[in-house]
Amino acid sequence: MKKFAVALTVSLVACAFVLASVAGAAEFPRKRVTYNICFNPGGESDITARLQEQTLKKYLGQDVSIQYKIGGGGAVCWAELTKTAPDGYTIAGHNLPHTILQPMEMGDAGYKTLDLKQVYMFEITPNVLMVRKDAPYNTLKEFLDYAKSKPAGSITVGGSATSSANDLGVAMLNRATGLKLTYVPFTGTGAAVPALLGGHVSALMSYSPMCIQYKDKFKFLGMMSEKRMKVTPDVPTFKEQGYDLVEGAYRGVAAPPGTPDAIVKVLADAFDKTMRDPEVQKRMDQYGFETLYMGPAESLALVKKKTAEYEVIMKELNRVKK
């Protein structure tokens, strides 16, 4: 009797799941979509999601519920996503280089880079090197010369987390200049700001929105982008100052592995319309985010291209899990 009851419950539950997923594919979306944010509220990922929320609802024709799953530098959220039902009703924000570097460095991060089904890549925030307004140097060259005159390792550069675009940016700068700047990781972009304001680190490697948020507190020495951003015309690129360094954080959304392509397409289309919406566009510019419009195929290609690139850099830095 007991066995029968257990078997009955199990089969009922299984049937329900199958039914739910079959019904789901027919006309997606039929209910609320949960959009998980893997980082602290108030960070770039959260802010972008909040900018998209209303417009996304409009184009998806369903409610979108933003929820936080924080821990392990995003890994908790992504590992959980790979175990979620692939019905398209749960998606998560995802970031490069995080989702490439975590599995690369740790071996087992709870997920694999390509487990995450790419939906849409909507923004990039290039790295920016900044110092305090009262610092004795005004250009990248002056800063680097100053660093050269000091003992190796004594110049500190703060940034957000380890194995992030900030971390890589400093490592790449060290490699390009032969300097030994010490990278000091903080628990987020915001957490690093007081450290520079208080003069506890010499500079910050952070992301482009800072150029607008802190324009009267900091000086911006260089941006690691191909060309100047149109919202920050006074911030020069590293390239034009003689260093061919391009690095930044990409943000997009991903779905659980095995999500049907038809569903991914519906989601990607909704994101595409959202990002092209003039109101969203205006806000993205206003806050210093550079908008991208990469569908599922393009995003996947980007992930693969970046993986190959990072593999070389990380090997050189001796940071790949053996």
Binding site: V13, F17, A20, R30
Partner: peptide, 18 residues
């Protein structure tokens, strides 16, 4: 409040999905 608590298959069948 639209929190993603499990609704359960019984209620889902009834069309109560939040």
């Amino acid at each position: 409040l639209q929190l993603s608590f499990p609704v359960g298959f019984l209620l889902e069948r009834l069309g109560l999905e939040g």
